[in-house]
Design a protein around this nucleic acid. Structure first.
Lengths: 396, 396
DNA sequence: CTCGCTTTGTCCTGTGAGTGGAGAAAGTTG
DNA sequence: CAACTTTCTCCACTCACAGGACAAAGCGAG
């Protein structure tokens, strides 16, 4: 099947496509209420979109006291692929044009195996989704990778945790393999876009989205747009100093936030605590599993283990301290906490909140919600779909 | 004289006004090269602007091998007022429509004397400039105040160092007194706009402008626009924790950057050093002046005083540490250092650079210039003129 | 000085975007 | 069936804008 060949011809059409994406099916009249165009002009643009096949008119809506309206909706066959490549696993999902997740699969995989191996896996996963009948093909894909990206070209630059990816033409390669347009971004930015589109950050213009997983990063949204920085490394807060003369970090400095709190650091601390006999709960788990991860710490904490709770609290304090600085600096309207370690839940959140509310200025924190992301692992893939749809739903 | 009554009627006219402001006089042909309009349409819009009196055509330019062009320029009588209210002094300047400073005066004054006293002073200074023949009146004024501002209304909110200003309708009050449109912003943002318009930050889209004066603040420019944050307190980095369990700060916390390094903190440290006999140079100055300020420390350092140099270096290190975090987070294309203590010059800059280049990620610092502002005390007033001209030169 | 060339500025017409009103189509309620 | 509502279509008019033709003004060479 030939996929989405057309693109909106002008800003009006782009606007209409986004309205349909974000608001679902709509009548011409309803669209007219949301866009600053006369009914006649609107009708013309809708007709042109119908001609291109990007949108379809199917069926009539129930009457609201007058003539029944035609349902205008985005082509139901449109499919976007959202791919979230994490440090240790890959998420792939298909969405329809409204960015609703139709299917989602996750596979463990170490990103350090390199782009070739990872892409093989991604393509296999995409193929599986297609084979299951959810899509006949993909009209676009948004990919997140755990490192800085030169956004216009879609190429990772100097990514610390994914050697072998530096300069690899991710966008071009995947675009060829998938046969559709591809956009690439940092995984944290994707998460921010996901929460912005369908999560807690709807209708917030300026917010921060802190992702604590294997590493720590922060998506920055200014005026509804992701801020990527001059070299694409904006939001890389894992190597901000959290503890003066603290632990040595892989980056060569000492006391980086990431060295003191992240999925990796937490696991290491937990193992140490277990081996030193400071926590029976963790020791048991270490013995049965042979290893420990953030999930074990969360479970131990849930079981009331004091050491586990301490670990979480201390990490939350460190993180909160750094976030407090960022809040003073950036003055966001919302802070979202997400990523793998959010399983640590309320204990973590409470520690972060305490630090931020105590250390930042009242004016900046006065009305500042600090909340967990509500989309979990789907934030990234929805963000990917959103990224590519924003691209495709803009004037050619 | 009646002042600027007209406003640009559409985006084209606004664009033309800004081109003329930033590029000086221009022929119709040259304007056509810089704007995406046909010559005919351009001519129409220029004619309309000529009718309103906002621009004038005076004289012919030298021939460049063909017909001589008319010089189109902004009305030469247009005057903007830039006002920079600092913690301890007031700067007022008049500019022409091209934002060139025609006259600039400075008066010491403590902002804590409150808005009424300060405005009396500002009006007196503005009157002096007018009386000197530099302006027959003002077409607009941009005011900077040393605290957070609710920008749309032009009202300071919860300003820590200027009690008595909270909620005072600065914009409205001054607009009445001056009889012209007024815009109000944080002084740090004004400085950033000044350096962006006429200083080191020309042609840089994303940059930070750190102002170290009585307090410490940071102007944030994203994509050419000042980021003010949700409550107008963005850039308030003076109360980011720089030293864990450090000195008590007026804000109630400990170890704030501002408590360890700022004009006020530096003066206090210098007096302490003088009294403890750690610096003969500073002691002499303390005796003759009865007090010490950042200027004295700068002079002592220039004279080779080791203690003074140490004070500067340590402050620079603290500041650099905080900036390093912000650089990792924001990934700017430039960092500008300005404000009163820039008299400390190269010693300070070197300390800041060392910390930033050591602590931030190579990708973020790789090509990051860290420089002193080049406009000094005029940055703020030029920024003020820029602020109001941006406002007036936008579609009504 | 005249001729050819260049640059600048003006005029005019055609095209297409966009508005707003009239009214047709399709429904509901009484 | 009449009166009223909502949705959608059609049409005429306005205005923004492009682009070409052309006039105005200047330079340099012969």
């Amino acid at each position: 099947m030939r996929r989405m060949t057309a693109r909106p011809a002008n800003a009006h059409q782009a606007r209409l496509l986004r309205l349909l994406r974000d608001g679902g099916p709509n009548s011409r009249a309803q669209l007219g209420d949301q866009i600053d165009l006369s009914r006649s002009k609107l009708a013309v643009e809708v007709d042109r979109l119908l001609e291109t096949g990007l949108v379809v008119a199917d069926g009539l809506a129930a009457s609201r006291g007058g003539r029944r309206s035609h349902n205008i909706r985005l082509a139901p066959a449109l499919r976007f692929l959202g791919v979230d490549i994490g440090a240790t696993s890959i998420d792939v999902a298909v969405t329809n044009a409204e960015l609703e997740v139709l299917g989602h699969i996750n596979q463990p995989m170490d990103v350090r195996e390199g782009p070739v191996a990872v892409f093989e896996q991604v393509l296999a996963m995409a193929g599986k989704l297609r084979a299951s009948g959810l899509a006949e093909g993909f009209d676009g894909a948004g990919i997140g990778v755990p490192g800085p990206v030169r956004f216009p070209e879609g190429v990772p630059v100097a990514p610390p945790i994914m050697p072998g990816w530096d300069g690899f033409p991710v966008r071009e390669a995947l675009s060829q393999e998938l046969g559709c347009p591809v956009m690439v971004d940092n995984d944290v930015n994707l998460m921010a876009m996901g929460e912005q589109h369908a999560g807690v950050a709807r209708s917030v213009g300026d917010f921060l989205c802190v992702k604590i997983g294997t590493g720590i990063g922060c998506g920055i949204v200014v005026g509804g747009e992701v801020h990527r920085g001059t070299t694409g490394s904006a939001g890389d807060i894992g190597h901000i100093q959290a503890v003066p003369d603290g632990r040595p970090c892989a980056c060569g400095n000492r006391g980086c936030l990431e060295a003191h709190f992240s999925g990796a650091a937490l696991a290491r601390d937990a193992i140490e605590a277990a081996q030193q006999g400071r926590s029976a709960e963790l020791a048991t788990r270490l013995e049965t599993n042979g290893a420990l991860s953030a999930v074990d710490v969360a479970a131990a904490a849930a079981a009331g283990d004091a050491t586990a709770l301490d670990l979480i609290r201390e990490g939350g304090n460190r993180t909160g301290q750094v976030i407090a600085g960022l809040v003073s600096f950036f003055n966001p309207g919302l802070v979202v906490i997400g990523g793998g370690v959010t399983g640590l839940g309320h204990t973590l959140l409470a520690a972060i909140r305490t630090q931020v509310y105590r250390q930042s200025l009242p004016l900046a924190t006065g009305n500042l919600p600090i909340v967990l992301g509500e989309l979990g692992p789907t934030a990234g893939v929805i963000g990917g779909a959103r990224l590519i749809s924003d691209h495709l739903f803009s004037p050619a």
